[in-house]
Design a protein around this nucleic acid. Structure first.
Length: 467
RNA sequence: GCCCUGGUAGUGUAGUGGCCCAUCAUGCGGCCCUGUCGAGGCCGCGACUCGGGUUCAAAUCCCGGCCGGGGCGCCA
């Protein structure tokens, strides 16, 4: 009753119900659907699905394919006495090969999904080699290094792919927020002549024979756009830091989410905007990605507005009360951040808090930071902490030309090296401020990932340049 | 940059001087099995990061290289 055909030379297996299919012309008469849509079909309905052959379970007279596409896994049933001699060839297809399968839907309580596909044709698009460099569903773990050496294979795992689906939704929520708030998305150069901060963390670039660098931050460009009158801008783009860090929260290339806004009254306006942005993007994620968050076992808590603000000075006092010792200067260090994160969680039931009024000497490289008029030893700068880790830095910028030049002098910076930037401040600059947020860190903390590299498709660090 | 720590089959591991031509799992190969869901049964395959040293004897101890993991400073 079944007639079977095989084009073995072209690596294509093809068999069909008599009269149903044209082998000679290889007619494809059905549109592919996703695994998750198959269950909507009627008993006996024809469908075409495609994906990676995750697993072959051969029981002798009957075999099962587990085929994965980007939405899930479906099962294909192969009955030997119906398929005939091609059976042995089909069950021999290496796992992780890409296959296209046409067949009929069959509802059954004999499988967990409640439905399966009886194939009328199986086509192998691409045969996977053996052994796999990394198992997709193997019952053994793999080291991070092995996984990132084979990232394409690693990302086939449902729980790894889900991280980037969450990241996508988070980004959409962020863009949705900025759109509603009247910000425009901009792009600034990543090859630059000077850095916004110290020179030690700059990557060198040979720019047609001239020394250039990869941008550490879009900071100076954002400010120039304030001078241009765009008033509200944001950018989501890579930033580069050539620091010799080897931690779970640093990479050499990261995605920086920056916004800048004009006509603010104080840094409180910037903190409010940051706070609303976090709130909106997390709500957007919860609304559209709850299934993904469940899959990842992540519980997302949206902060109540306004997010708690604690001055740097108060942080020191709290840490002293908690019994912290400092060897040198009293400031919020990595240990202090973690302690404060727990303190805020316990006392204010929040994952987020601002550290405000950073002392000027702790922001010494930040020549563009505005200081408090009543006490120049304190800046308007703040950090936003998320689960005990720094996520955001920002504040009000110094928009007064004379003051800005004086602050550059203090640091020994030559304004002539920043000519095109400085010029902006001479011809009408509104009061303004903004932030930089580490997007990869946001995803890391959101999903409680142990290492920031998990939140990046192809991470760059001190030792990894490939893939 | 400083400190700690690791490198054993394709993958993940056990093994602190002789009991190791190296354990277990997974994978791969072969055979059996018509309802698997981490299928099961039987058989097989496959590894000590590199170089030097100590020792009668080194996966194991020492030195160096290469490659990882973590912490700190710093930072997003």
């Amino acid at each position: 009753m079944l007639s079977l055909y095989l084009k073995s030379k072209t690596d294509i297996c093809f068999f069909s119900m008599k009269g149903f299919y044209s082998i000679i012309f290889n007619v494809v008469c059905m549109k592919r659907i996703y695994s998750t849509d198959v269950m909507e079909l009627e008993e006996g309905e024809k469908c075409k699905v495609a994906g990676w052959l995750q697993e072959v379970k051969n029981l002798g007279g009957i075999a099962f394919f587990k085929v994965r596409d980007r939405k899930g896994v479906f099962q294909v049933v192969l009955v030997k006495k119906e398929i005939g001699e091609e059976f042995s060839e089909l069950v021999d297809i290496p796992r992780e090969s890409v296959v296209e399968i046409e067949g009929k839907i069959q509802h059954t309580d004999q499988t967990e999904l409640g439905y399966e596909i009886l194939p009328t044709s199986v086509k192998v698009d691409s045969t996977a080699g053996k052994p796999l460099p990394l198992g997709v569903i193997d019952k053994v773990d793999a080291d991070m290094d092995t996984r990132f050496d084979n990232r394409f294979m690693d990302l086939r795992k449902e729980e790894k792919m889900a991280i980037f689906q969450v990241r996508n939704l988070l980004l959409r929520g962020i863009r949705d927020f900025f759109h509603k708030e009247g910000f425009i998305e901009v792009n600034t150069p990543k090859i630059v002549a000077a850095g916004a901060e110290g020179g030690a963390t700059l990557f060198d670039v040979d720019y047609y024979g001239t020394d250039a660098y990869l941008a550490q931050s879009p900071q100076l460009f954002k400010q120039m756009l304030m001078g241009a009158g765009l008033e509200r801008v944001y950018e989501i783009a890579p930033a580069y830091r050539a620091e010799d860090f080897d931690t779970v929260r640093h990479t050499s290339e990261f995605i920086s989410l920056d916004f800048e806004m004009s006509f603010i009254e104080s840094s409180d306006d910037v903190m409010d905007m940051t706070s609303y942005m976090i709130e909106h993007s997390l709500k957007y994620l919860l609304k559209n990605g709850s299934d993904l968050l469940d899959k990842l076992g992540a519980e997302v808590r949206v902060p109540e507005h306004p997010i708690k603000k604690i001055t740097h000075h108060e942080c020191i006092e709290i840490l002293e009360d908690l019994g912290k010792d400092w060897e040198d200067e009293k400031k919020v260090d990595t240990e202090g951040e973690k302690m404060l994160g727990e303190y805020v969680e316990e006392n204010y039931d929040s994952d987020f808090f601002f550290i405000t009024e950073f002392p000027t000497h702790l922001k010494k490289n930040t020549f563009y930071a505005m200081r408090k008029d009543y006490d120049p030893s304190i800046t308007t700068y703040f950090d936003l902490e998320y689960k005990g880790q720094e996520l955001v830095s920002g504040g009000q910028r110094e928009h007064r030309y004379d003051v800005l030049i004086a602050q550059m002098d203090e640091l020994g910076l030559d304004p002539d090296d920043f000519e095109s930037y400085i010029k902006t401040f001479k011809y009408g600059m509104p009061p303004h401020g903004g932030i930089g947020l580490g997007l990869d860190r946001f995803v890391q903390q959101l999903l409680d990932l142990e290492n920031i590299r998990e939140a990046i498709l192809f991470p760059r660090d001190t030792s990894r340049l490939s893939p």
